[in-house]
C-alpha cells in the first residue's frame, strides 16, 4: 500500500480511500495463508480457492464499512453524561462479530482500520491516542476470552467495553501525568458494563442468525 507519490494510482487515491484497500489486502493475505494450508492437504482447486479468497475480502471490506457507519452514527449521538470516555461502542459489535464469525487476524485488521479511519474522519490526533490504546487493550482481551470460551459473547463484550475504558484512562493518565484520573474508573466501569452487555446481546443474536449463511459462503 505504500505507493510512491509518482505512482499514478497513489495520486488519485487519497489517504482515506487507500485504507479500506489495505484492509482488503490484509484480509486476502490472511485467508491466503489459511488456504495455502488447505492446498497442502489437497483440499480445493485454484478457481474455488480464489472465489473463497474474494468472498472473504468482500466480507471483511463490508464489515469495515459497517464499522465506519456505526462509528459515524455514534459520533452524531450527543454525549449522554458529561464524563469523557462514556460511549455506547456500537462499532465494537462489528469487531465482536468478526471475532466469532471470521478469524482473530481479520477481526484485528477491521479494528485497526476502523480506529485509524474514524480518527482521520471524525476525530483528532489526541483522540487517536486514547481510542487506539482503548481499542488495543479491548481487542487483546476480547480475542483471548472469545477463544477461551469461559464467557459467552455477552461476557466477552462486557470485558471489551470495560477494557476499552480502562485503556483510555491509562492513556489519559500517561498523557496528563496525573494518577488521580483513576477516579474516572468508577463511572467508566459502570458505563462500560452496561454498554458492553447491550452490544454483546445484540451481537450474539447477529452471530447466531448468520452462522449458517456464512458457513455456506466462506
Amino acid at each position: 500500500m505504500s505507493k510512491l507519490p509518482s505512482d499514478p494510482r497513489g495520486k488519485n487515491s487519497s489517504g482515506d480511500v487507500g485504507c479500506p484497500d489495505a484492509s482488503a489486502d490484509k484480509a486476502c493475505e490472511n485467508s491466503g495463508n489459511s488456504l495455502r494450508g488447505a492446498k497442502k492437504s489437497g483440499i480445493g482447486n485454484g478457481a474455488g480457492r480464489n472465489k473463497i479468497i474474494l468472498r472473504r475480502c468482500v466480507t471483511v471490506s463490508m464489515l469495515v464499512a459497517a464499522a465506519m457507519v456505526l462509528s459515524y452514527v455514534e459520533s452524531l449521538i450527543p454525549p449522554i453524561v458529561p464524563i469523557p470516555g462514556v460511549k455506547i461502542g456500537l462499532a465494537n459489535s462489528v469487531t465482536l462479530f468478526a471475532l466469532y464469525s471470521l478469524s482473530i487476524k481479520e477481526a484485528g485488521a477491521i479494528s485497526l482500520v476502523r480506529v485509524c479511519l474514524s480518527a482521520l474522519l471524525f476525530g483528532n490526533a489526541v483522540g487517536l491516542l486514547y481510542s487506539a490504546s482503548g481499542a488495543l487493550l479491548s481487542f487483546v482481551m476480547m480475542a483471548l476470552l472469545s477463544r477461551s470460551r469461559i464467557f459467552s459473547c455477552v461476557g466477552v463484550s462486557v470485558v471489551g467495553g470495560v477494557a476499552h475504558n480502562v485503556g483510555q484512562v491509562l492513556a489519559a493518565m500517561a498523557v496528563m501525568q496525573t494518577p488521580w484520573l483513576i477516579t474516572y474508573l468508577a463511572p467508566l466501569l459502570i458505563s462500560g458494563v452496561i454498554a458492553g452487555a447491550g452490544i454483546g446481546i445484540l451481537s450474539g443474536i447477529l452471530i447466531k442468525k448468520t452462522t449458517t449463511l456464512l458457513k455456506k459462503l466462506l
Partner: peptide, 14 residues
C-alpha cells in the same frame, strides 16, 4: 460466568 463477571466489575466500580 457472564453474570458473575458483570457483578464483580459493577462492585469494583461502585
Amino acid at each position: 460466568a457472564d453474570v458473575i463477571l458483570i457483578l464483580v466489575i459493577l462492585a469494583i466500580g461502585f
